[in-house]
């Protein structure tokens, strides 16, 4: 895109600048639309599993439900508790929302179609996901209310715990791909096992993917790990005191994060924009379509789990993170790197 702007007569720097802004808008605006629609999808799947109809009144098949909800929330009054720390109270949802959008910069949508093709792509994703906790913690503290504070404590402990094992899982992927660059990680999965594109077909990486999926649910605080907003204990968790648009920002940020986790599952273990099988006919379908299909599949899995699995108890959550996932993923780092050294993968 930079070349295009250069042909209009901009210098390289400004062409790059304008092209990047356009790229950001090209990702962020469809993402917002996708979040609105995926909330609808989530509710529909959830309803179907509970033998209900789900949203079906606003627009055809209830498709416009999310927009109606958004409009309703937009028109509500923003209430700031008098005892709250005003500045931080308002900044917290903005942080959550911004951070949820930031990591999309390094997701490859097609070969070469990546906003920021940096060689530390995966580390960038880790860095951004570690920022996500601030939106929650600041909200909990700034609300100056007990339930949000409890929730913030839970959220930070939970996210730090699962980030550790996610880090080890990603190291296995990086070792096998030989790069931190997201595009190269996807390319490394091309006919990884026989004609299957994707690390998931690898018997050493398949358990890592299972753990990544579960850790991803814990990291995005989705059911069955939604202890931060366990309504039976904490009212609505860290967003108890929020109303109107600031509440909506949490909502959007949460779903953008879930979509990101689905995209990471697809990109790191299921071959991203590559078709599932390395057959020439399948490459006729554009890459972004494959990626979107995979994201949608994982979102279905997330919704499915949300609709069927009961919530974990907090000590069970901590046990799973520290006593099961951490030792197993650490063990797999040793096994994977040992196997790769033995087979001369690094030569």
């Amino acid at each position: 895109m930079t070349e295009f702007f250069q042909t209009i007569g901009m210098t390289y720097e400004w062409a790059w600048f304008v092209a990047t802004i356009c790229g950001i808008l090209l990702i962020a605006l469809p993402l917002m639309l996708a979040v609105a629609m995926i909330i609808y999808v989530d509710r529909k799947i959830w309803a179907a599993m509970a033998l209900r109809r789900g949203p079906n009144v606003v627009g055809p098949f209830g498709l416009l439900q999310s927009f109606a909800d958004g409009l309703k929330v937009f028109l509500q009054e923003t209430i700031i508790p008098s005892a709250a720390n005003k500045g931080l109270f308002l900044i917290a949802p903005i942080i959550t929302f911004t951070v949820a959008l930031l990591a999309w910069a390094v997701i490859p949508f097609n070969s070469g179609a990546i906003l920021a093709d940096i060689n530390v792509g995966l580390l960038y994703v880790l860095a951004i996901s570690s920022l996500g906790v601030y939106g929650t913690v600041i909200a909990g503290w700034a609300s100056n209310s007990k339930y949000p504070f409890f929730s913030a404590m839970r959220a930070s402990a939970q996210m730090i715990s699962y980030e550790v094992s996610i880090g080890f899982i990603l190291i296995c992927v990086v070792l096998w791909a030989g790069s931190f660059n997201m595009g190269e990680i996807v390319e490394a999965q091309k006919s990884h096992v026989w004609i299957i594109n994707g690390f998931v077909a690898n018997p050493l990486l398949f358990p890592m993917w299972v753990m990544f999926l579960i850790s991803g649910m814990a990291e995005t605080q989705r059911a069955p790990f939604d202890l931060t907003e366990a309504e039976s204990e904490l009212v609505a968790g860290y967003q108890t005191e929020y109303s109107s648009m600031s509440f909506a920002l949490y909502w959007l940020g949460e779903y953008a994060n879930v979509l990101l986790m689905c995209a990471l599952n697809a990109t790191l273990f299921f071959g991203g924009y590559l078709p599932p099988l390395d057959i020439p006919v399948l490459y006729l379908v554009p890459g972004w379509l494959w990626l979107f299909a995979k994201i949608f599949f994982f979102f279905f899995v997330f919704s499915w789990v949300k609709a069927t699995v009961p919530r974990y108890r907090y000590d069970q959550l901590m046990r799973l993170g520290w006593k099961v996932f951490l030792p197993v993923s650490l063990g797999f780092v040793v096994v994977v790197s040992g196997y790769l050294m033995y087979t001369g993968h690094f030569a």
């Binding site: 580390l123 880790l126 860095a127 570690s130 920022l131 906790v133 601030y134 913690v137 503290w141 404590m153 930070s156 730090i160 980030e163």
Partner: peptide
């Protein structure tokens, strides 16, 4: 960002 912002500062804040 990962170590200081993501882990150390969170514990500070905690």
């Amino acid at each position: 960002v990962i170590v200081y912002v993501g882990a150390v500062a969170v514990l500070f804040l905690f």
